[in-house]
């Protein structure tokens, strides 16, 4: 369900990816993160074996980080149960990137990422 138009090497994408990965690391712990070999294609439910309250923790960290720029609640509201179960790290990254680009934050975020 990739929706981002950005390439996977541009600074905005890398910045968002790093932020998402950091949120996951904070919740599951460094050791488990490495053990799971978490990547963009990893699903939260099956591959990372997250409980719903952990997904909530990650979502809340991202909501706080991107407050006012990314409407996570409206996005989650549109997802079917099957899509929630199949949610991957890459899907979240793509959604955030797309949202930031739509809100005209590309330049600012890229700058923040050191571009």
């Amino acid at each position: 369900m990739s929706t981002a138009s950005s390439t996977r090497t541009d600074p905005l994408y890398e910045s968002v990816r790093t932020t998402v990965e950091s949120a996951i690391r904070d919740v599951v712990g460094e050791w488990y993160y490495e053990e799971c070999q978490i990547g963009l294609d990893s699903t939260f439910a099956e591959d990372i074996q997250l409980e719903s309250m952990e997904v909530m923790e990650i979502a809340e960290r991202l909501i706080e980080t991107y407050e006012g720029k990314v409407d996570f609640v409206a996005w989650f509201a549109e997802l079917e149960l099957e899509q929630l179960i199949d949610l991957t790290v890459g899907t979240i990254v793509d959604f955030i990137v797309t949202s930031l680009e739509a809100s005209g934050e590309r330049g600012a975020s890229a700058e923040a990422a050191g571009a």
Binding site: S52, F76, A77, L84
Partner: peptide, 9 residues
């Protein structure tokens, strides 16, 4: 929250 709460938001 994910399955019923957010969709009602």
């Amino acid at each position: 929250s994910f399955t019923l709460g957010m969709p009602l938001a």
